[in-house]
Amino acid sequence: MRLSISLTLLALALFVVSLLVGPAELSSGDSVAGLFAGGGEAAAIIMREIRLPRAILGLAIGISLGLSGAVLQGFLRNPLAEPGVIGVSSMAALGAVLVFYSGLAGSSLYALPAGALFGALLAVLILLAIAARQGSTLTLILAGVALSSLAGALTSLVLNLSPNPFASYEIIFWLLGSLKDRSMEFVAIALPLMAVGWFLISLSARAIDALSLGEEAASSLGIHMGRARFMIVAGVALSVGAATAVSGTIGFIGLVVPHLIRPLTNRMPSSLLLPAGLGGAALLLAADIAARIVLPAGELNVGVLTALIGAPFFLWLVVRARREML
């Protein structure tokens, strides 16, 4: 409990810092006044329409990725499972790109989460089918690698084939992720879906605890496996799908955060869920702040920063996992 409180405070502090960082050099006094005072002044517009949606999305997407990573690691009993690594994020991005850029839904923003949810759901179902047949850690990761490279290639292809010549510039956004210039419209289409996803994942808490004793033991404890699987599949698809629909693929948050936080918990998978979500929010907000400070004019894609932190960590986990196997 103490862990969750301190992580909440950390995430909230980073949320506030995120509101204070940006290319328009507002003093912190102006920023606070802009956020709460009325009127159409520049400071108020910048705070409410540009920085607030960005900070909200950083918080919510961080929670989605951290929570999904924690639940997938517990459910699949695989320390390397994570929405980015196993290809759920890339498939969500592909789904969003297919529906949005084809113009099937006009230029409506609702096309983004619709396509992304479908892509994420498809990815989770494929991976579960593979993981159910053969439980090895490696099989799942290799399937994820295949899925993400295919989805990444198809995403680039679809954007290249768009009749709008500007679409191909957006390959970088979909592959590396960014929270730049998102508006409240994006919060409105993504946040409710993510919240439903969080709720479904939280319902599976007892099931993943029981699963740590093995599937048979879980069934004997009265856990309905089909129901638990549905909660997790739908929860991950909703939260990662909606997150990716508005931010592109942001990798490694769901991998790094549960591993960093697990030693601080009682090691029950369920007690990791809430702290992992809060930790994910803190990490994504911090990375997004850094993306704006490192390159103030051009701005880095936040996925680059999470990969810089996450990829070495992933390698270290792989090396450690091999050593334990030997």
Binding site: I45, I46, E49, Y101, L109, E170, D181, S183
Partner: peptide, 15 residues
């Protein structure tokens, strides 16, 4: 343009 892009939402941002 008739074919949508996300980039088009930037100049049409509510801000």
């Amino acid at each position: 343009q008739t074919a949508p892009t996300l980039g088009e939402y930037v100049p049409r941002h509510p801000a």
